[in-house]
Simulated assay, not measured.
Amino acid sequence: MPYPEGHKFKVRGKIIESAAQAFRTNGIRDISVPFIMKGAGLTHGGFYSHFDNKEQLVAEACRYAISDTISFLQEVADQENKGPKINAVIDYYLSTQHRDRTEMGCILPALSSEISRASDEIRQVFTNELERMIDFISDVGKIDKAKGSILLSTMVGTLVLARSVNDSKLSNNLLTAGKQHAKELIKS
């Protein structure tokens, strides 16, 4: 019996979503194709009917993860009624919820150090996606790209440090200080 129309597209999407979740949590190097396929509810034998190699999947997962993050942060911004929409984005990005839910969070803090050692193809995709994120932050903040770059760098760096320490009080203090500084950047 043939598969229904769009089946292969849906399966590919499940694989990309599983990969994005796994990479957000554990990075690229430590995640195997069988692990990703299992997370998608599939056997690893079908992987190569969807992707040429793991590198192609990494590229697709980066694109998916940034689109997912931008969509979610746009919803956060759209719900802000009292102050600047960028403040709502900053508050969520530097929240304990975002810090603790790596599997659903922004892929930038999860992969930045690892991507610096990846192939040029992967680095180009990551560069393009980083630029999309800077554009999004700049648009929501109604700031130029230079300031958007500084703001995003501050937010990503703060989140990396807050996730890295094993002292919850220090981690929370980093998030609080990061929020404060990020909001000051917008005012200046």
Rank of each mutant, 00 (worst) to 15 (best):
V165E: 12
F23V: 02
A146R: 11
V125M: 04
D144S: 03
F126C: 04
E60N: 06
V125I: 10
S188I: 13
G41C: 08
L73H: 08
H50Q: 09
E131W: 08
F72K: 12
A88F: 07
F47K: 04
N87K: 08
H44L: 00
A22P: 06
D139L: 12
H181M: 15
R12E: 15
H98A: 15
L175F: 09
F35S: 14
E103C: 07
K145V: 10
G45S: 09
E5I: 01
V156M: 02
L111H: 10
T96N: 13
L161G: 04
G45H: 10
G46I: 10
S71M: 13
L42M: 12
E75A: 05
H98C: 13
K38G: 06
L130Y: 13
R24M: 00
I122N: 07
T176E: 15
S32P: 13
G41N: 11
S171R: 09
P84H: 12
L130A: 09
I31A: 09
L111Q: 02
K54N: 12
T127N: 12
K145M: 00
R101C: 06
P4C: 04
S116M: 10
F35E: 14
A177G: 15
D78R: 06
V140I: 15
L170I: 14
S49A: 13
G13H: 05
A177W: 07
S113F: 14
D120V: 02
K169L: 11
K169Q: 14
A19W: 08
M133S: 01
L111A: 11
H50S: 11
D30N: 14
F47R: 05
P109V: 02
H50M: 08
V89H: 10
K85V: 01
E131P: 00
S153I: 03
I66A: 00
T102F: 02
E17H: 09
L108R: 08
V160S: 01
Y64E: 05
H7C: 05
D144Q: 04
I31F: 07
F51A: 02
L73R: 07
A61M: 07
S138R: 03
L185F: 02
A22V: 04
Q21E: 15
S113L: 14
L57F: 00
Q74P: 01
K85I: 03
F9T: 14
C106W: 02
Q124V: 06
K54L: 11
Q180F: 08
C106T: 05
I186E: 06
S188R: 13
S153W: 09
S168D: 15
T176W: 03
T127R: 15
